[in-house]
Amino acid sequence: MEAISDKELEAKSQVLVIGPYSTGKTTFIRYLLGRDFNNMNIGPEPTTDSFTVLVHGDEDRSVAGNSFTRITSLPYSGLLQFGTGFLRRLTASISPSPFLEHITLVDTPGALTGEAHQHRRSYSFPVVARWFADRSDLIVLIFDAHKLDISDELRDVMEGLVEHQDKVRIVLNKADQIERAHLMRVYGALMWTMGTIFPNPEVVRVYVGSFWDRPLKYTAHARLFERDQTALLGELAALPKESATRKMDAIMARVKRLKAHVCVLGHIRAQAYKDELLEDLGGVFEEVRLKHGLHEADLPDVAKFGAVLRALDVADLPALRPATLQQLDDVVDVEFPRVSAAT
């Protein structure tokens, strides 16, 4: 769990746009901006092999990733950890679009099919996407209603978004290009696929429409398209007002996970029999959860935790101190309500 920097807390709302290539991601962003932007490439084949962060500025210009991540007034220095291979595929597009005055957009490479992504990428797309997702207020997954395609790479990315399901929105784009009956089948297939990835796919909001300025080809669902486009634009417009609350919720979730982690480590240190505990680590977690009134979702991943624990000396683990638990409880029960009342 990476630290949250002051710049990240002070940052504008951020929207991450993800999807297969040629689904209209870049066109969707152009639709939101109401204008073209630097590094905008639109085509039927993979045209965007870079992450593009769209930020507000007085004039259209581009900034290379290596320079962009070193601008101290922006919250992107954490991207330096992904190395030169990624930074060469990162660009900032400065635009005077009014939409960007309060919201930052992140355009991503189109997810590739087959094994192409294993050889073409000089970085881990799912890992970088997760970094942006952790810091985004909304994650928009765009699919082409005309050719629903979820590649292995895209599935890997989406599986990394499971804990952010509340922030995920799905756009079924180019929906006017197919007839009514076909659209219903595509929608059903999309929801079935979401059910294999997200634990509660029925709560993921789906917007159906064609996010461009062209006339509709099939108009049977014109009212639905108009309603969903208005609803999505309204949700985006509300993000800046809700950003502070989202960030506070994210920090509170971290505090609760930290408390769970501290309780588990303290329990294991007190037992001093690591090998026996590793045999039933799930049982240990449940014992700690019941003892301290923890939520199951706040506990560490059993497999990952066990793999790290095997390499550690139990004597080096921190002891569980009541004062530490009290401090963490005070953050949740006292400090957060106080801050919330003041905002």
Rank of each mutant, 00 (worst) to 15 (best):
P75A: 02
R70P: 06
T84Y: 05
P96K: 04
E115D: 09
R88Q: 13
Y31M: 08
Q81R: 11
T48N: 12
L100E: 02
I42N: 03
L90P: 02
D107M: 12
G57F: 07
N38H: 14
P109F: 10
S62F: 15
D107L: 11
P96T: 04
D36I: 06
P46E: 06
S95M: 06
N66P: 01
P109H: 10
V106R: 01
S77E: 07
P98C: 00
L112G: 08
G57L: 13
P98F: 04
E115S: 09
V63D: 05
V53E: 03
T47P: 00
L105T: 02
A116V: 02
L32T: 07
F86H: 09
D36R: 10
L32Q: 00
T69I: 13
S67Y: 14
L112Q: 11
F37P: 02
F51M: 00
T91S: 15
R61V: 09
S67C: 08
R61A: 14
D36V: 07
T91V: 13
L79P: 05
A111Y: 03
A64Q: 14
T104F: 00
Y31L: 09
N66W: 09
R89W: 13
R88L: 12
R70C: 09
A92Y: 02
D107P: 07
Q81A: 07
Y76L: 08
Q81E: 11
M40S: 12
L105Q: 04
T104Y: 01
A111D: 09
E45A: 14
S77F: 01
Q81G: 01
A92K: 02
F82A: 00
F37V: 01
L100H: 06
N39S: 14
I42Q: 10
V53G: 03
L105W: 02
S93K: 03
R61F: 15
F51Q: 00
